[in-house]
């Protein structure tokens, strides 16, 4: 059952080999202000941008933005406000009450406001989704033009779990009315340093 039968059927029914198209990335090249475009797209997808002149201002910014956050997980080691420590023993259920997660972003993508985060930088995969508010710290210089460049940057990574995050979770499943905050994080703040 299954595999051999399927493969036999594919071999019988597939057409003669069609070559893989050559991809010329020059077609997609643009000279644009990467950071300005990225910021514009983050706003478009419902995220908030905060620019800091230095990383040590982050605590003050967090206290201002999230005055009611009690349970904070910091995966960047840049804030002293972390109250919940997690390890590889932490279970998803333990994180139900997390108010804020601070996660380092690897790079941003100017064309769509997406930021790549991966599980080598946060110890438990569910964290960026289960947290009420998500804050991603990103270095201004780490913004690429489009997804083609993004996958070039990702090509050498150690593959486990990673995700492009573009804005807070959202849905428009009730009469096409956009509601921010579906099953994942209710908000996304991108701190640029």
């Amino acid at each position: 059952m299954g595999k051999e039968e399927i493969l036999r059927s594919v071999r019988k029914n597939k057409p003669t080999l069609i070559p893989l198209p050559e991809i010329n990335l020059d077609t997609f090249n643009e000279t644009i202000d990467l950071l300005a475009n990225f910021k514009e797209k983050v706003a478009l997808v419902g995220g908030t941008i905060k620019e800091l002149s230095a990383l040590n201002e982050i605590d003050r910014e967090i206290t201002k933005l999230f005055p009611n956050a009690r349970n904070i997980v910091d995966c960047t080691k840049s804030s002293s406000l972390g109250t919940v420590s997690i390890s590889d023993k932490t279970q998803p259920q333990d994180l139900e009450g997390v108010d804020l997660a601070i996660i380092p972003g690897a790079f941003g993508v100017a064309e769509n406001g997406a930021i790549w985060i991966s599980d080598d930088r946060f110890p438990i995969r569910i964290l960026p989704f289960i947290t009420k508010e998500l804050l991603i710290v990103l270095e201004k210089k780490n913004v690429c033009l489009h997804l083609h460049d993004a996958y070039e940057l990702l090509s050498k990574r150690d593959r486990s779990f990673g995700v492009f995050v573009s804005g807070p979770s959202k849905t428009a499943d009730i009469e096409q009315c956009l509601v921010i905050g579906a099953q994942g994080a209710l908000s996304l703040t991108v701190v640029l340093v």
């Binding site: 991809i23 797209k41 478009l44 997808v45 993508v109 064309e111 769509n112 406001g113 997406a114 989704f129 489009h146 997804l147 083609h148 993004a150 996958y151 070039e152 990702l154 090509s155 593959r159 486990s160 779990f161 990673g162 995700v163 492009f164 995050v165 573009s166 804005g167 807070p168 979770s169 959202k170 428009a172 994942g184």
Partner: peptide, 30 residues
């Protein structure tokens, strides 16, 4: 190839809802 995601993810959400990309594009490898 993984690089081909660059092409397909640029097309998918824009064609579907007009978003530049879906909120989450999750890459599962292990």
């Amino acid at each position: 190839k993984e690089a081909h995601l660059g092409i397909f993810l640029r097309l998918l959400a824009r064609s579907a809802t007009g978003q530049p990309i879906t909120t989450y594009s999750s890459h599962f490898n292990k």
